[in-house]
Design a protein around this nucleic acid. Structure first.
Lengths: 158, 158
DNA sequence: CCCATATAGTATGACACCAAACTATTGAAG
DNA sequence: CTTCAATAGTTTGGTGTCATACTATATGGG
């Protein structure tokens, strides 16, 4: 939950502007996330799609720990997402041959198809979202967001 | 959950860039949100702080429905957040005199103090976060994010 | 070889969130 | 005045997320 237009004091401090920035990001994430989820097939969620999409684009046969690290979530969070995906038949989780502690996540044919269906379902709303920002605005926004994301990632301890 | 650097195809479509943008926003929200929550006093959460902060800045005596609309969450979500805040003694929820269906949310003295404590607790990490982006970068980022947020808000149906 | 430490995965409990269903009250149309 | 649709708030069930604690397996140093 975040707050809109944290308003206009006469001359907001740098910290206040940053706070506003995080508020805006919170709302954007919430609105875009639920809009996206509403169109996904098979009752898939954003989290579940992210796993499928990762496997499609970057290959499967990763360990849960690798995936958790890639998505910046805890291993516990990923455990439950993987369990739901396995229940839907979209992935298979097998023991790692080399390391008795590890497992490997494999995309099934059905999971591959589901990922494609998600992308197809999302295309119309992404196209529609191009009304929101021009191509140029997106290109101005992205490097700054990436910079912020990288900083946060590197300063996770605080 | 979101994915980092959705990678580099030779020439990504506008839609793909937008998708990347939403991914970055998702990660930023997740990392900044948990960092913020870790420093909040009284076991307060981001959602709970947002309510207190709203009351401090924009006045209390709002209805839950008004707050839910301001924060872009469902009434059901707000119900539970308000219940937790009331249990902590930071707000009081009273019936509305005019409308038998409505209630009014009032900030207690203790709630006022808690909001101030949150802001004090957050100040160091906001100061630290100024390393992430220059003042100028924040000012370039904010209008674009606001534009995107407003568009999403106005196109909630899809 | 044994033990201390690190790592992988899991389980639990708490919170936020949504969607959908439900109750109670209001208000307007007939 | 009655009825019906809209609104306020709540409840339930499912998901994601974290923090914490737990088990099992590796690995490295005596």
């Amino acid at each position: 939950m975040s707050e809109p237009r944290p308003d206009a004091s006469p001359e907001p401090s740098d910290e206040a502007r940053l706070f506003t920035l995080f508020n805006e990001i919170g709302i954007i994430q919430q609105l875009s996330g639920t809009a996206f989820e509403r169109v996904l097939p098979h009752g898939l969620t954003q989290a579940q799609f992210t796993v499928l999409n990762h496997c499609v684009r970057l290959g499967d046969n990763k360990t849960p720990a690798q995936l958790a690290s890639a998505f910046q979530v805890t291993r516990g969070t990923l455990t439950s997402t993987l369990q739901r995906l396995e229940a839907k038949g979209f992935i298979e989780i097998v023991p790692d041959a080399k390391d008795g502690r590890s497992k490997r996540v494999l995309l099934t044919a059905s999971g591959h198809a589901a990922a494609a269906a998600c992308i197809a379902a999302a295309a119309p709303i992404l196209t529609r979202a191009r009304e929101a920002l021009s191509r140029d605005e997106v290109e101005r926004l992205l490097p700054l967001l990436t910079k912020l994301r990288v900083w946060l990632d590197e300063n996770r301890s605080l």
